[in-house]
Simulated assay, not measured.
Amino acid sequence: MARVARTCLRSILKIVNSTLGLVGIAMILYGFWMVRVLQRDMESPSFDDFDSTALWFIYTFLSIGVALCLITCLGHISADSSNGICLSCYMVIIFLLLLLETLVAADILLNSDWVKDLPEDPTGRFHDFREFVESNFDFFKWIAMFIILVQETNIDENPVSARDF
């Protein structure tokens, strides 16, 4: 009976990790699309005084996507090995990721001037992205709740007992 439960937990953990990995891959693809659009826009004469440090949004988006993909790989490894130490490390990383997401969400919800905390974006792409999110807020709210639900499910389904060590 315990073997069936462990196999079921492994399968569920892999499905949840695959969803998290797809989110990471989607972020990477969107980041590459933003780089392509930026390169196309840089060829126009209006980008003569372009500051290269303004690429913070693209770099952040790409690095978060890569981090999610690496976390997903660690989750698949821990699901296959059922090693207590690997599962514990994975759970700590997921917990820190959720904590970071909670802090960012709290800053956005409680700080009405949160946009002023961000660096300037001379390209205007961040403003376009923000308008797109605001115009489709209900859709993005469901996506955000789905991502958080997947991560919460990931934590809840990783029981580590003393016999695993």
Rank of each mutant, 00 (worst) to 15 (best):
C8A: 12
S135G: 13
V16P: 00
I25D: 06
L20W: 01
A162F: 10
G124T: 06
M1H: 04
T7H: 05
A26Y: 12
V35P: 01
M1P: 03
D80Q: 07
A106H: 05
P45I: 08
D51C: 12
V115N: 10
L20F: 04
L100G: 11
S112Q: 13
L149P: 01
L22I: 13
E152W: 07
Y90L: 11
V133W: 10
T153H: 03
Y59T: 15
M42Q: 10
E120G: 11
I108N: 06
M34P: 00
G84I: 05
V133G: 12
A144H: 12
R130E: 14
S135A: 11
W114Y: 14
S82A: 04
F57V: 07
L20S: 03
D41S: 05
A105L: 13
A2E: 07
K116F: 10
C89Y: 10
S63R: 14
E101K: 02
I155W: 05
A54F: 05
T72P: 05
F137I: 15
Q151M: 09
I85P: 01
S63D: 14
T7I: 09
D113T: 09
F139D: 10
T19L: 11
L87H: 01
N111H: 04
S78T: 09
L118N: 14
R10W: 02
L68R: 02
L13Q: 07
E134D: 15
C73M: 12
E157I: 04
D164Q: 13
I64F: 15
I15R: 06
T60I: 13
W56T: 08
A54G: 14
N111T: 10
L98V: 08
Q39P: 01
M42H: 05
L98C: 14
R6E: 10
L118G: 09
V150H: 00
L99Q: 05
L96R: 07
L87T: 04
M27P: 00
I147L: 08
F146K: 00
T72Q: 07
A2G: 06
V150Y: 01
W33D: 08
G24N: 06
W33V: 10
V160N: 03
P159D: 04
F137Y: 14
N111P: 00
Y90E: 08
R3I: 08
R10K: 13
F32S: 03
G124P: 02
L110T: 09
S161I: 08
V16H: 00
S81D: 08
L118M: 15
A54T: 13
F57E: 01
F129S: 08
L55E: 02
T72Y: 03
I93S: 11
E120C: 11
L70V: 15
D48H: 10
